[in-house]
Design a binder for these strands. Structure first.
Lengths: 176, 176
DNA sequence: CTAAACATGTAAACGGTTACATGATTCG
DNA sequence: CGAATCATGTAACCGTTTACATGTTTAG
């Protein structure tokens, strides 16, 4: 159900858009929160139109169909946000790897953690540049999600750095 | 593929176990990193046995089958951890909600955020109690994952609190 | 003319969730 | 004896990923 909600949100903020537009918007904005490719988006838009949540506003060149959100769609989005109990379960490979770390030799675990720190440092820099580059007004929509995304990446980065330090100081370092 | 890896990890640390045991272990340990029910675990164990990653060590009462990890299984786990490039994409409803927050009226957004802060506070307390209750030795396995889990929840909590404060101070508060 | 970008779709396979289904053993 | 717990499985459904498939328009 959440793909539908994400699409309703994008249509609310960006105005009438085609499936193609929405696929690009997905990549460029909501991507760190939710992922979907065009093969999922096109059929979903058709179903949403059948359910009356969006309408085909106009048909352009190359079979382009521009969808607009309906009142029923806006209501659905609002209901989901306000009334639906959020699902807080999350599945992350980072956490699974954290769990499995003690099955490795300390030196191997250290190497993995250090590599992760580097990757997350790079990600952090990219997101922080994005934060700085857009004027606050331009970010607007997506601002809260970007803030959360940056904080979450920093959290994993710091955890990896601290855990590496802890393993190192407890005998995982270089052998004499 | 990750369910398979999680099961290999549990078998490594807890020793030979039945599907039933593994289902319980899943709930009690790895649950905040990955979820799986018995209906997923039993067929997977059968497939893993067919692939030679685990063996049925003994058959007990009530049809109980005790599985043990094989050398091939250990190798598979190690390979996954060391050689496989981690997937860093994550899907969280919290992030999607953060993204959609600006489609609501400030007062509604505030109410949602405040409710979230309370829920995450409660979760934090539960996990921190778990952290304190187990001796470090007893936690052992799962220690790193628990640490990461606590940090991640604290991050979301703090984001929600800060965002609520920001919305409040910019006109979302009580009307005069 | 040709390559890139625009634009939409379908199908197979996979993984996860929920519900259904069954039966054995232990404890009070 | 009855309830709780132990113990294993299957089937239907849904959402996601990957691959296949097709055709148009624009820019160089």
């Amino acid at each position: 159900m959440s793909l539908r909600i994400a699409l309703l949100g994008l249509l609310t903020v960006s105005g009438p858009s085609s499936g193609y537009d929405l696929t690009k918007l997905f990549e460029g904005s909501i991507n760190h929160a939710w992922q979907a490719g065009h093969s999922q988006i096109y059929p979903e838009l058709n179903k949403m139109a059948a359910d009356g949540l969006v309408t085909v506003e106009e048909e352009g060149p190359r079979g382009r169909k521009t969808y607009a959100i309906t009142d029923a769609g806006s209501l659905e989005l609002r209901r989901w946000l306000v009334e639906k109990e959020p699902s807080r379960s999350h599945r992350s490979e980072a956490a699974l790897r954290a769990f499995l770390l003690p099955t490795l030799e300390p030196q191997e675990a250290l190497a993995l953690l250090r590599a992760e720190v580097e990757v997350y440092d790079a990600k952090l820099e990219a997101l922080e540049a994005l934060w700085r580059s857009k004027s606050l007004a331009e970010v607007g929509f997506g601002k809260y999600a970007l803030d959360l995304g940056i904080r979450q990446i920093r959290t994993v980065r710091d955890w990896a750095a601290d855990t590496a330090a802890a393993i190192e100081s407890s005998g995982g370092g270089a052998r004499p």
